[in-house]
Amino acid sequence: MPKKKSRRGDNDAGLTITSMMDMMTIILVFLLKSYSTEDISVAASDDLQIPVSTSVKPPKLAVNVVVSRKDIVVDGAWVLDLEQVIDEETGDEQTAVPEDKKRGQLVSDLYDALLEKAENAKDLGVRTGNADFEFKGEVLLQCDRRLPFSVIREVMFTAGQAQFGNFRFVVIKGSD
């Protein structure tokens, strides 16, 4: 306090920001340390709840297919909407691909979108001649945990037809 007074006398009323600087430096270091540029990002919402798994395998960049309870999105571009149907046996509501959007198990719109991605990726691999860019048929699947397997199967089948045979299911790292 007496120090402040003397300062005021000098017409130099500076803020004592030393403690704040200390705090900020610590926060900055902590945040920089926890800052990680992950190859994939998940926009979790009510319709997209990623399941928790004990897997520890780090994600790698690949074509990103997001299957929420509402729609299917490939690399950020909307592909088609899903519908809610009532199961006749149990009476529960379940997500399903609309009947008019698929041929057998093949989801036509998703097939077209993925095929284009595959062609582009192959083209890139040929043009660069770099093994890193070679087409490996990898696809990242972000699916809502409440989806029935029938939807997942149709998505997997469609991806398989579009030359994507290596699936990576995106999960949240957790102990349970």
Partner: peptide
């Protein structure tokens, strides 16, 4: 900063 860390399961 993401406080949720992700992983993948291969299949």
């Amino acid at each position: 900063s993401s406080f949720v860390s992700l992983a993948v399961i291969d299949s």
